[in-house]
Amino acid sequence: MHEMSLMESVIEIVCETARRNGVTRVKSVRLEVGVLSHVDPEALLFCYEAVRRGTIADGAALEINHVEGEGWCVDCCKTVKLEERFGGCPECGRHRVQMTAGDELKIRDMEVV
């Protein structure tokens, strides 16, 4: 389950950022997870419960926002919605689409006390 190592990294970044800024408690964390990222949001939530214990993020809420897949079609020069990685352009059907969104895992922000 790679979500465990991902969430360990998220908590490490959150806690280190909080400490550097003199914060003693994190109230909430908000993530952006792309629908094409191959990351299971339910597994992230499960792992979050385990890895936050004993840290300054212990008790902090986790919000996961889903980012839709999007790409730029080189052939028809349009921004298009992507339903799958390496999928064809829904406009022209060709497969020269450069993904521009939907594969990210990003800490959007956090609320601190």
Rank of each mutant, 00 (worst) to 15 (best):
I56W: 04
E42I: 02
V39L: 07
R25T: 10
D58G: 06
V74W: 07
F46R: 05
L31W: 01
I64Q: 09
V33L: 15
R53V: 13
C73G: 08
V51G: 08
K27E: 09
L36M: 09
V29N: 03
P41N: 13
G22L: 05
C47R: 02
R53D: 09
A43H: 11
V33P: 02
I64D: 04
Y48Q: 06
V33W: 00
W72R: 12
D75M: 01
F46P: 00
V29E: 02
N21L: 00
V51P: 05
A61L: 13
C73V: 00
V35S: 10
S37C: 06
R30Q: 12
R52C: 03
A50N: 04
A61K: 15
V35I: 11
G54L: 09
Y48S: 01
V51A: 10
D40P: 03
V67L: 12
T55F: 06
A61V: 09
A43K: 13
E42S: 13
L36K: 00
E49I: 00
G59T: 06
D75R: 11
G59N: 11
V35Q: 13
E63V: 08
L44P: 05
R53T: 11
L62D: 02
I56D: 08
H66F: 07
I64P: 00
A60S: 13
D75H: 09
A57V: 03
F46W: 12
D58V: 07
V29Q: 09
T24F: 06
S28W: 01
V67H: 02
I64N: 07
R53W: 00
W72H: 13
A43W: 09
C47F: 07
A57E: 03
P41E: 13
G22K: 01
P41T: 07
V74C: 07
V35R: 11
L45C: 11
E70M: 06
H66L: 14
E70N: 01
T24K: 14
H38N: 14
V67M: 08
T55L: 08
R52K: 15
A43G: 07
V74S: 10
D75T: 12
L45V: 11
G22P: 00
S28I: 03
R53I: 13
A61F: 02
G69N: 02
E49Q: 15
N65R: 15
R52W: 01
A43R: 12
V26K: 10
V51D: 09
E63M: 05
W72I: 06
R30D: 10
E68I: 10
T24W: 02
E32T: 03
P41R: 12
G71H: 05
N65S: 11
A50I: 12
